[in-house]
Simulated scan of single mutants.
Amino acid sequence: MRLFTRKVPKSASAPPDAPPVPLSGFAERNPVTAKHRRRWLGLDIGSSAVKIVELSRQGEAYRVEAFAVEPVPPGSVVAGNISDAGAVGEAIRKACERAGTKPRNVCAGIRDSAVVTKTLEMDASLSDRELEAEVTLEAERQMPFPVDEMAIDFEPMQLSSRDPSRVDVLLVACRLEHVVLRQEAAELGGVRLDIVDVESHAVQRAVAEVAPERQPVAFADIGASTSTLMIVDGESVVAREEQFAVDRLATDALATDAHATEPLLGLLTRLLRLVRLGNPTTPLDRLLLAGGIATTPGLAEGIGGHLKLAVEVADACRDMAVAEHTDAVSLGEHAPMLFTACGLALRGFDAVRT
């Protein structure tokens, strides 16, 4: 894996020998450090709360070691963008204290709407260093902001279908400030950020835990200010976001008043139509529902009846073991809020597989 880590500078509070944080949606192989990385904490920073999940792995089996949900002050995170790193850092600190963990390895997420992706075609004979230089030049030409303001990552995918002497390379970039603010908030919260991953990639990993048959699955996350709907089909993810505040809903009446769900049903219908435009013939019969309101009695059934899909509450940890000191009942109750954080924790284990 090649990472433009030089594009992500250390913050002022970072130790002198601390490595910069890569923006990555891909697996970084690093067998040398694998023995030191048996636990990973996924950090999901939302508009209403910080969510953390810490996983350990033995062989291919995962165990939930800790989790927590800690509110953030209103306005400190707006549509996934951190506006008050100090407030977010304090929430991270409280979440780790509540969970009883002092994480060594942390992966945070960044919204898809903040990320730009491009597929480039490069000479397949280029060395790693030459490929990095060529991708940098292409990023300067094709990205909508200056290269010195970007955090960049890339991954060679497969040989070009048009010319086997060339290779398709996926380029991922975002504004540097998005990564730096997450790094700053993490450090203020007493943890060091190792990886920043794209949230849809984290969801993709979590979906693979609950749908190993790899059939197309829809995923809806009803957030405090932004709602997202994705279709995960194997290695492919199509996502759409829309500003939609949960406080627009009469949440107390969702379980008893069909009219209270109408704004939500309209939102999901609209987003589902948008994500299916690219491949309207893809068979789809299942939707995972995430977010704080997902466990509302009768809500999943009502959405399923409206969308003509089998809807279930999203729980990426349901088949994982749970540490004795962790409250399994509370974990189940909070599972729909922890889905993305769980996928972010899973990303860390990709980084150490040989």
Rank of each mutant, 00 (worst) to 15 (best):
D17C: 01
E209L: 14
A328Q: 08
I152H: 04
A202E: 07
G343Q: 05
L254Y: 07
L265F: 10
R286V: 12
D247S: 15
D17R: 06
E301N: 08
A49E: 14
I110W: 05
D319I: 00
D112H: 11
Q183S: 14
D197C: 13
A300D: 01
E177K: 03
A294C: 06
L193H: 04
A133C: 08
L23E: 14
D17T: 11
L171V: 05
P144S: 13
T281D: 15
A34K: 04
D327K: 07
Q158I: 05
G189T: 02
G223T: 10
V196N: 08
I231M: 13
V237H: 03
G75R: 01
S113F: 01
E213K: 12
S113H: 06
C317F: 10
F67W: 04
L120A: 06
S200E: 08
D44G: 08
G25W: 13
P146W: 12
E312N: 13
A208N: 05
R6M: 10
L229K: 04
D327A: 06
N30L: 05
T251A: 05
A186E: 03
R37Q: 14
T5H: 07
V77P: 07
R2M: 11
V64Q: 07
V116Y: 03
L229R: 02
A310G: 02
V180R: 11
K7A: 15
P283E: 02
G304N: 03
P212H: 09
V180L: 13
L126N: 11
M150G: 15
I152R: 01
R318L: 13
R104H: 14
A18I: 03
A208F: 15
P216E: 01
T226R: 08
E187Y: 02
G332V: 04
D257H: 08
